Amino acid sequence: MAQQVRGVVARGKGEPVSVETVLVPDPGPGEAVVKVQACGVCHTDLHYREGGINDEFPFLLGHEAAGVVESVGEGVTEVAPGDFVILNWRAVCGQCRACRRGRPWYCFNTHNATQKMTLADGTELSPALGIGAFAEKTLVAAGQCTKVDPAASPAAAGLLGCGVMAGLGAALNTGNVGRGDSVAVIGCGGVGGAALMGAHLAGAARIIAVDVDDRKLETARKLGATHTVNSRATDPVEAIRELTGGNGADVVIEAVGRPETYQQAFYARDLAGTVVLVGVPTPEMRLELPLLDVFGRGGALKSSWYGDCLPSRDFPMLIDLYLQGRLDLDAFVTETIPLDGVEEAFARMHHGDVLRSVVVF
C-alpha cells in the first residue's frame, strides 16, 4: 500500500518549489524504500527547477541523501531493512560493456526504480537523478543504496551522494593526484572545495585554489589549499605558473564548467599534465583551442563523471576516513534547514553564501 509523505516538488520551469503530498509505492522487485534522514541542496536540483536538465515536470527534487532502508522488494540482497545507506545515482548494471571490462565506474546502463512516485492526484513525478530525496521517504533501485557505517552523521554522509564525491573523485580517481604533485582547482564551491580536500588527502605538495570570491578562497584554505588566487584581480594562468616554478600544475581541475575557465585550466597545466573537467557546462557552450597546442602540450584532457566513483568501493572507504577524522565532511555542511526551506536555500546557494545547505528530517 502506498505511503503518503511530504516532498519538495518543482511543477514548472522557474517556478518556486512547493512542499506537497507524495505517494510512495511499496517496493517492487529490485527496489527499496528509504526513510530519508538528510539531503543536501545541490546546484543540480536548481538546474532541474530551471529546466536545465530536461522538461519532464513535475520533478521530485533532492538527491544528495542518506537514510535508513525501510523495506525492500523481491530479489534484493545487497541491502536490508535497517541498513544505513547513502543514495547514489550510479546503480551499476554489471552487464554493459564498461562493467564487463572491469570498469563499472563508467557503467553506461545505470538504473533507477521501475515504479513511479506520484502526487496525490496520480500525476507521475520525475525524481531528480532517479532519487527524489527532498522527501520523508523515497523509492529507489536497491543498487542506488550503498551501506555505510551508521556512526556517520547523515547530513555529512549524504553529501557523498553527488557534489562532494564529484570533487573528491575528480582529484583521487580521474586526476589520479599523487604524493608531491602540484594541483590547481579553478572554482571553489562545493565541488571544487571537495577537489581541494581530495588533493590534500592524496598528498599533493602544492594545492592552488582559484576563484573570484574571497570568501570562497578563505574557505579553500580550510579545505586544504596551500595558496589562493583571486582571478578577478590576477591572471590565474600566470599565477599558477609562478607558484609552480614557471611550469604549471601537474593536475588542474576545472570545477566551473565554462569555456573561459577550461582554457585557463588547459594553459595552467605543466607539459604532460592533466586537465580534469568536473564543472558541468550548458548545451550551447563551445570550446576552441589550437589543435597544435593540444598536441604539443601532451598529457591528458579528462572529463570526470561523478568523480569516476564506484559507490560500493568509495562510499564505505570515505566514511571510514571521515570517522577516523581524516576527511572533514562536516566542513561542507554550512547550515541545516527544514524541508520547507529549500527555495530560500537555492537563493543562498546562487549568491555563493553556502557550501551546502542540508535538509534534515
Results as ranks from 00 to 15, higher is better:
residue 216 K to A: 08
residue 287 L to M: 13
residue 46 L to I: 15
residue 253 I to E: 00
residue 273 G to V: 02
residue 133 A to I: 08
residue 74 E to C: 05
residue 262 Y to T: 06
residue 195 A to G: 11
residue 210 V to M: 06
residue 82 G to F: 09
residue 168 L to T: 05
residue 66 A to F: 12
residue 309 C to W: 02
residue 82 G to Q: 09
residue 342 V to I: 15
residue 143 G to E: 11
residue 192 G to Y: 05
residue 334 T to W: 04
residue 21 T to A: 12
residue 21 T to Y: 00
residue 72 V to H: 07
residue 98 A to L: 08
residue 218 E to N: 14
residue 102 G to W: 12
residue 117 M to L: 09
residue 175 G to H: 05
residue 140 V to K: 06
residue 84 F to K: 00
residue 236 P to H: 12
residue 311 P to C: 10
residue 199 A to D: 06
residue 316 P to G: 13
residue 225 A to R: 01
residue 65 A to D: 01
residue 159 L to A: 01
residue 90 R to H: 10
residue 45 D to G: 13
residue 69 V to F: 04
residue 90 R to G: 00
residue 303 S to I: 01
residue 270 D to C: 07
residue 357 S to T: 12
residue 170 A to R: 01
residue 171 A to G: 03
residue 33 V to R: 13
residue 164 V to D: 00
residue 148 V to Q: 14
residue 313 R to P: 01
residue 76 V to C: 00
residue 292 L to D: 14
residue 83 D to K: 07
residue 67 G to F: 05
residue 345 A to F: 00
residue 27 P to D: 05
residue 288 E to M: 06
residue 296 G to T: 07
residue 274 T to G: 04
residue 346 F to K: 05
residue 24 V to S: 01
residue 60 L to C: 10
residue 187 G to E: 10
residue 300 A to R: 15
residue 107 C to H: 11
residue 109 N to C: 07
residue 115 Q to R: 15
residue 12 G to V: 03
residue 113 A to C: 07
residue 106 Y to D: 07
residue 52 G to Y: 00
residue 295 F to R: 06
residue 298 G to Q: 03
residue 136 E to V: 02
residue 329 L to H: 12
residue 118 T to D: 10
residue 279 G to L: 02
residue 244 T to Q: 04
